[in-house]
Write a protein that binds this DNA or RNA. Sequence first.
DNA 1: AACAAGACCTGCATGC
DNA 2: TGCATGCAGGTCTTGT
Length: 273
Amino acid sequence: MPELPEVETVRRALVPAMEGRRISNAYIGRPDLRWPLPDNLAARLTGRMVGPLSRRGKFLLVSLDGDETMLMHLGMSGSVRIHHKRPAIGRHDHMVLEMAGAAAPAWIVFNDPRRFGWIDLFGDGTHPMLAGMGPEPLGNEFSAATLMDGLAARRGPVKTALLDQRLVAGIGNIYACEALFGAGISPRRRSYTIRRQRADRLAAAIKDVLVRAIEDGGTSLRDHVQPGGEIGYFVQRLSVYGRAGAPCHSCGTPIRSLVQSGRSSFYCPGCQR
DNA sequence: AACAAGACCTGCATGC
DNA sequence: TGCATGCAGGTCTTGT
């Protein structure tokens, strides 16, 4: 599921339910997801006050009192739901946080059938998983110039480069395809051939597609739901992803798909060069 | 050093 | 109906 817009959607929905509130109870279902979870995680979360929620790429960061941060990644199939009544524990519910509240308690449920997601705690400084990550595409450090620099050293296709979190953080398969369509660039184009003009268009298209997807609550293909249970409506605005054979909204040419580094790419041969 | 392929895991759609 | 196959929003590890 979750690329930057989906994780950002989750973060925004969790803010009112978690920030400034205390974790009154924690349930952990199994000792490992993608990797082993911290020892005694449930006990270490219980009683903690939650500070600001932030996001880095596709990671969600929950600051806790005592200068510790909980890091969450939703993998491919992870989702987070907010309940206002105590929920029954479902088959793939791996973490449930009960949030004490002056008004009413809330339960935060992390569910991940495929278990590619992950939860960790870290203290001072940064986490190894965040080190080396590229700039936030919606932040000030990201620009056409930095993007062009990153692409200049690569001989592989630009589509594959966009999926590398060291180049730019938070882009996954859907938004890589959509951004390339928005910029009129073929996914097969070799990275280093993207110079000023195309880099300008690509940086702008990346920002544009991510902003619009956040506004729509992300893209729901199968697993993604917003924490309140709503789907993400950007699925209705996809230009190319998942549309192989269907006519391009811009020129009518049938959308094509191909496999690059084991991932499906979708593009319009009429609009993208 | 960059790149592609394999691995991890479950669920779902498809086709026989 | 049952079963095999392929595919899925990610990314670490391995091998070239």
